[in-house]
Amino acid sequence: MNARLHTVPEQFDDPVQQREAATLGMWAFLATEILFFGVLFAGYTLCRVRFPDAFAAASRHTDMLLGTIETAVLLTSSCAVALSVREVQLGGRRLATALLALTAALGISFLVMHGFEYYAEYEEGLIPAIHYTQHGVYAHGIEIFYCLYYFITGFHSLHVTIGVVLLLVMAWRTWHRAYDADYHTPLELTALYWHLVDIVWIFVYPLIYLVGRAG
């Protein structure tokens, strides 16, 4: 595969039009993604208004240290993927591939850390319907918090997983010279997607981990 041999599909006039279409398509897709997460955040907000204390208490059960590390990991990975796009634009290949691999590795480590969190919560009996042993004052509200927690973080982790797969494919193709300074739309779009995954997490992090820890 060589970037210069990249053919434009029949429906497009030229590479410029194709690139425009692909980019706009990605942005439109990201808009739907925001709506996907938007509903969950709306649901979260309303439930939190109903059970403010329970949500604060539940939030204190989460692992803030891991959550913070995860945030740092995702932010770093976003930076890495942005640098790799720049590297390809400047004609580089080795460094770009390495950066993409690094991004994917960071994504995987994010998932692993999340796995540890889920396991710890299982031990603690915080998984509604599967292993839930909370009693006492806020048991009810905490259950709702954890329902939303698993739904939101699970849905987000699904996005991370898809992103990691895409990044690995991009790394492979970059290494095999599929992209160069003229043509690298798929790489750019993957980076865009990865940034969205990152941005969503920026909202998840305070909502899940920091709620009960103010003051």
């Binding site: 649901g43 309303l46 439930c47 109903r50 059970f51 509604p128 319907a129 599967i130 009810h140 509200g141 259950e143 709702i144 329902c147 939303l148």
Partner: peptide
């Protein structure tokens, strides 16, 4: 599926 969620009033939902 799991009997947990945010809509059922019996579970504190709305």
């Amino acid at each position: 599926l799991f009997g947990v969620g945010i809509f059922d009033p019996a579970l504190g939902g709305d």
